[in-house]
Each structure stands twice: as C-alpha cells, then as structure tokens.
C-alpha cells in the first residue's frame, strides 16, 4: 500500500503494562487510522518503551487487525521487548527492525 511516502512514525513513551496499555492501544489505533488515511506504512518506534507486557501485544494485535493493508513495523525495541516479541512470536507476524 505504501505509495512511496516515508512511513508514519508512532513513538509511545514509557512502559506498557496493566495500567497503561489501554491508552497505548487507543493512541495506536488512532495512528493506524491516520496511516490508513494517508496511505502510509506505520513504524512503531519503541525506543522509549523500557517494558511491555502481554497487554501491549493485545494492542498490537488489534492494530494489525485494523491495519487493512498498512504495514506495521516494530522498531527500536530493546532486548526485553525483543524477547517479548520472540516469545509471543510477534516477530513472525510483524516486521521487527533495529533502528
């Protein structure tokens, strides 16, 4: 779907856990909607997320289901997050990038 434009960057701040995941999910859904409208891909930059629980995964799942062709890239994840992506095998349904 990407029409040559740079991917939209969504950069959550802080850890995503039981208390914050709902807000994260809401913001993420909004970002996906915007990316859809602008026909751009979405790059979620996890540089500022020290920790994410399985609640965050649920948000990613919902985002993926609503993506409707927008590719969602998980970027900048630290080791902890990469482990979460690995355990949940989200690295198999999302593209995970370093930068």
């Amino acid at each position: 779907m990407s029409e040559g434009g740079a991917p939209m960057v969504f950069q959550p701040q802080g850890k995503i856990d039981e208390t914050t995941w709902a807000a994260f999910a809401e913001a993420l859904t909004a970002a996906v909607e915007r990316a859809k409208t602008e026909r751009r891909d979405l790059r979620i930059d996890f540089s500022d997320v020290p920790y994410m629980s399985s609640r965050g995964l649920r948000a990613l799942t919902l985002a993926r289901k609503g993506a409707d062709g927008v590719e969602i890239v998980l970027a900048g994840a630290n080791a902890k997050l990469r482990e979460v992506f690995a355990i949940s095998r989200y690295d198999k349904i999302f593209r995970v990038e370093d930068g």
Binding site: L57, T61, R64, K65, S88, R89, Y90, K92, I93
Partner: peptide
C-alpha cells in the same frame, strides 16, 4: 519455532 497467539493472525 511456533507462531503468534491464536486470534492474532488466522492465516499464519
């Protein structure tokens, strides 16, 4: 190796 949780990607 596995895959993502059931319910996230039905076509996996």
């Amino acid at each position: 190796e596995g895959g993502p949780p059931i319910g996230t990607a039905d076509d996996f």
